[in-house]
Design a protein around this nucleic acid. Sequence first.
RNA 1: CGGGGCGUAGCGCAGUCCGGUAGCGCAUCUGGUUUGGGACCAGAGGGCCGGAGGUUCGAAUCCUCUCGCCCCGACCA
Length: 573
Amino acid sequence: MRLSRYPVPTLKEDPSDAVVASHRLMIRAGLARKEAAGMYVYLPLGLRVLRKIIDIVRQEMDAAGAVEFLMPELTTADLWKESGRWETMGPEMIRIKDRNGLEYALAPTHEEAFTGTVRSIISSYKDLPLNAYQINTKFRDEIRPRYGVIRSKEFIMKDAYSFDMDDEGLEKSYQAMRTAYRNIFKRCGLETIPVEADTGTMGGNQSEEFMVPSEIGEELLLLCDSCGYRANQEKAGFGRAPAPAKGPFEELKEVSTPDVKTIDDLVKFFGCGADIFLKSIIYIADGAPVMAVIAGDRDINEHKLKSFLGASELDLASDSTVEEVTKAPVGFAGPVNDFKIRTVFDIGVRDISNGITGANKKDVHYSGVNPGRDFHIKDEADIALAVEEDPCPKCGAAMKARRGIEVGHIFKLGNKYSKSMGLTVLDAQGKSVHPIMGCYGIGVNRTLAAIIEQHHDEGGIIWPVTVAPFHVWLVGLGKAEEEIRQADEIYGLIREAGIEVLYDDRKLSPGFKFGDADMVGLPVRVTVGKNYFQTGEAEVKLRSSGAVEKVRKDDIASRLFALIETETSRFRI
RNA sequence: CGGGGCGUAGCGCAGUCCGGUAGCGCAUCUGGUUUGGGACCAGAGGGCCGGAGGUUCGAAUCCUCUCGCCCCGACCA
């Protein structure tokens, strides 16, 4: 491809709205342009990268035995009503009406669509296992799209859904996807960390996210170096200290605490550690108030709480709701009360003795609070947020925290969708059973962004050869007719050898062309300039290492093949 | 949704306080000189100053309303 005929609109300056490297470089290297918040136009170069990633994904999915489908992106409300998610998906799902007033959703995910389709095409255990996938657009009305294509309203996802007869089958399908994902990310040049994850609104019981470690990651990961435990903070547990011996119980006493509302205030006021306070927070779970109680030195993990409650919506209660429920202003709630409210206790609460908590009266706290005596613990769960340095739940060593970008997510779903959608097959005994499902997603655009995050320098992108839009950037520096002819000749030679080459035949100064070559970051740069015209040796330079060599015309094609092969081997599985 | 910031040429920005012919750099076009790390000279094109109302002799600038964008937070497969 000749650059004079192929738009690669590089920019000298950073776009004003880009705050992360991948976003900045995608725009500056001419891969994409922003259309609106969370919506991007892919220019020819960016599209080629997407295609390369998609090719790798498709090859590995096919190799793992999955079969490709293509679902409509416009889905009927009826489909979502079957599973109940028309109601539970919330405003994240973009809903529209046609001219007749019929309701549709722009699909944010495709469990229903695949389950519905599979329902109509299989009927026997002999048809299973089946792993159906597609590479298709998803729409999500994100509250705040950001970081370029890392969180956008419209994006390409590879989503796969496995159907098995039993847990053993599901385990096999799940492990096959796990392996496929490792292969995919390795081939894309990405270092990923698989972590235990929260299953969120997808339901299910086991899931792992593939995280690309990065400063700008939106997820916090807790990692144990000594035993290998790795979890998303949303899901992470931590080792609890053994319960201290319970001393003599003090009497429950009201203490006047004017304007002492926060844990910090209480620590100052009582002159004791935060861990003996029973922090009580009011939430609204699917419309009903819930009190969550936890030791004062810890925070509530709302994902854990939500999952324990089985709620689809969980919000912090407003100040007025808190007053209504506890009959006291915010800051004085506590589990020692006589009003009816569902209360969930973190498992650490039972170990607190002679604690302090709000008395549900303005400016009053209780001291000498003892679980079991002063209040009854019925709902108890791990609802605490694990933080860096907490002991690992498996081995007790201190955990490290790291940020990560989620590029893939695999779930064991169970029969939630096969049940609600009425998908059944006959087993060997002729009995009707619901297949067990798994689901597996990869964000393609986000993968592209993550690759740039991991592969760039001050000069621009450094593409792993496996996803590079072209392999070779040929710079022609001659200006005389004969010099241009010689550069054209090299271009023809490389192209005819079947190597993907972008030929910078523009009439620009050398510095400008080299700058663009670095910015766009193709793996190999070939320069046909003064040196070539004088000695017949072209300069060949690797973007990744900066290594330079001189190659004669007759050797160029074979040398480029060798270099591309060497580069590829770095990302082979 | 709360807090903060910003909308002026394709991109990056100044001008807004204090109303008076809409500017700068990059990019683009023409001519010339240059050519191994983002060249130089001369000339040129390109704007409903986000939109709508208002105040005023006169509005990019002041007032009201609105739309959009960015950041932090809340939120979120």
